[in-house]
Amino acid sequence: MKRKYSLIAVMILLTAIMIFDIRLNKPFDAFSASIVNYPERKDATFIQNIELECNEKLFVEVESSRLSIEPTIKQVASIEVAEPTDNIIMIRTELGLVLKVSGGVDAKISLPETILPELTVRDSSFVSLKSGLGEVYATNSYINLGHNQVSKLTAVDSFVQLTDSKPQEIKATNSQLEINQAHQDKVPITLDITNSVVNAYRVGVLNGTTIDSTINLEYTGEVSLTAENSFIRAKRTSDSLNLNLISTTAYLELEDHLSKITSENSEVTVRIPRNAVDLSIKVSNTPITTNISQAKGSSFSIYRGSEPKKQSLKTQGGTLKLYAPYVDM
């Protein structure tokens, strides 16, 4: 009896402390802050201005170093390092000003919005946030671009993370690309991908070619891709899907929007939409595995729902697995 009442008293006391503590302090903030660590950056002691002449172009070359670029409201560009070093060199050439960062330097460049530097990154880590960039060439590097305007990105043996960044053209070889846009913009991204992995999430317009690569598309808008010897997966696409597959393994979840898929010697698995479908299929020398009863012969169509969008699927060779989430078709 004594134990029971002591326990209840302790629990009531603790509950009261908990309520007051949560009201007055913020214990959950300290708890969530203890989960991750942000590595502390040493206070910079050395800032060097980058003196650019009118309309002069800036070229940044990074080798075996860490560089970040941030925008500044000041009119002068500057580079900031923890301590003075000889590994930051500025050379004026006919093309423009070349800034070389090498030898394991950890530097930060502050740039006015009007300057769009061209970057060459080798064996390095490069992070850019809310800045405008010209062309970016990365070799064996880690690139992280957040809220950036980039005209062209070329990556070799690199890991590239693009968050809300809109490069018009991406060329990648032996690389991994993580493209993530919070809002689907209609700015097209053209891909030229070889032997790489691309995970695209919420990309507005995506087109181009992929060879020997793995492509994952999710919540993408207009997609127009030619894939060769690749693995492609598309699900929850929202606008149109135009794929040309050559010797490719594909897993495609069609939604209620325009789709045009042609395949040649490919292993294609297609899940047709749940509610509305107007899919015309033409197959040539392609064995079909399906749970849809009307899928017979070399040319047939599947129609259901009211005013579904036109979709077409043409295959030559390879295999086709066609299935509906429900088998009452």
Binding site: S34, I35, V36, N37, Y38, P39, V127, Y142, N144
Partner: peptide
Amino acid sequence: PDFLLPASPGLYFNSAFLAA
């Protein structure tokens, strides 16, 4: 030593949190 998070650059998972 903390765990590097490749999916979230610049962030390290605090091993002290897990130890606690």
